[in-house]
Design a protein around this nucleic acid. Structure first.
Lengths: 224, 224
DNA sequence: AGACTATTTTGAACGCGTTCAAATAAAACA
DNA sequence: TGTTTTATTTGAACGCGTTCAAAATAGTCT
């Protein structure tokens, strides 16, 4: 295939994706219809399904593109910020900023707790994105003074990722003015989180360590 | 209306509900069709919609019935158990036991994070059940030695309810043998929870208090 | 009893996401 | 160039949840 022809196809796909995002923004994911999206993109419904497996796959495509587009900026933030606090704050704040125009659409992504569901943040289909994302959090706390018990330490990036997903979930359904409540939640929980990490090594919290480690082993174990 | 006639109508409703639950168990919520449920109940589709506003309303009816049926036993558990630990363990364990036969169906209930969605545990439609449930947790920690900072204390029942919902959510998607992982999660987190409550008053955790209180105010505030 | 009203039941029809055989356009090949 | 193969596009059709006008049934009143 010549480069022009790759483009032709890629362009149609892009046009459908843009039309879909516009429509999602306008009416929300549920109320947007594939027929409307197709019409908006100037194609037949079938064409939309030629490029995307399903309505939800369009959201997935958006999510993948988002991850791709955010990655360089996130790397930069991690490079420039020094402390875990500023890194975490920077990365997560940037994500809020990036996703803001499509905040409503994010509900289609974060509303699925079922790990079997393709759009679930815990599904196999989102594993690649998830793993990359967890990698960012690993970098955020790497080479820092944060010292956790050795059995718990490996779970920290995954827990931070989970924390971030919780924040985003709250944010999606936060109807307060300019999502003020989420900002407050973010500020306070981040402080608490870092304080907890600092205090975690203290002797009187030792009884927690084994409990927490066993717990994490059970939650994250691969075997069924 | 004569009592017999009330019964006649109530009986049809019950027959549809039973047929629906059977079908949900057999194929899961998604794959069960209203037409199949209606046929199974020996009525036309329209009849199902005469008694229930929607497919999801059937799940809601199941949820309401469950709450009604569980209440006496929960009261009994709260009466007989003395410590917060045994009360919490008893109440939550009983719920797992009660819901076990319909575990798969629970996904239809716990999968909706959107507070606007009728079936969401956070919605207005489930408020009555939720409030009663939170009341149980209030009783579970009442008259106990558990002493939290006064600004945080009022939130404890709601937080415990949230903890329970998290457990149930994990349980629904726990494919390990006999949900062993959930049992482990339950055991370990309950211990950690009670230990945390004990340690919460300790002086070096004081810095947490204001952070936590502000946070809870923001999360649970009514105003938009 | 019959006439009238309220309750219950029916199934065709609607809009949705999705599928798919067929039509069309583009590319590769001779 | 014409022919064959591949990629793209179409829109009717399917099964789903849901709606609703009409029919059937039950209850009430004179």
């Amino acid at each position: 295939m010549s480069p022009e022809k790759i483009k032709k196809s890629e362009e149609t796909r892009a046009r459908i994706l843009e039309a879909a995002l516009r429509t999602f923004q306008q009416h929300g994911f549920e109320r947007a219809t594939m027929r409307e999206i197709a019409t908006e993109a100037g194609v037949a419904v079938g064409a939309a399904y030629y490029y995307f497996d399903s309505k939800e796959a369009i959201v997935m495509a958006f999510y993948e593109r988002a991850q791709r587009e955010m990655a360089p900026k996130i790397e930069e933030i991690l490079d420039n910020a020094r402390t875990p606090e500023s890194r975490l704050r920077g990365v997560i704040a940037y994500k809020f900023e990036y996703f803001a125009p499509n905040r409503r659409l994010m509900s289609a992504l974060s509303a699925h707790a079922d790990p079997e569901h393709p759009l679930s943040p815990f599904s196999k289909d989102t594993a690649a994105i998830r793993d990359e994302d967890i990698g960012f959090f690993a970098r955020a706390v790497a080479e820092s003074k944060v010292k956790l018990p050795p059995r718990i330490s490996p779970y920290l990036p995954r827990l931070l990722w989970l924390y971030q997903m919780g924040l985003i979930l709250f944010w999606v359904y936060d109807h307060s003015h300019e999502q003020r409540r989420t900002k407050l939640l973010f500020d306070q929980t981040l402080k608490m989180l870092l304080l907890t990490l600092k205090l975690a090594g203290l002797p009187f919290l030792r009884p927690m360590h084994k409990l927490a480690a066993d717990l994490l082993d059970a939650v994250y174990e691969e075997k069924v």
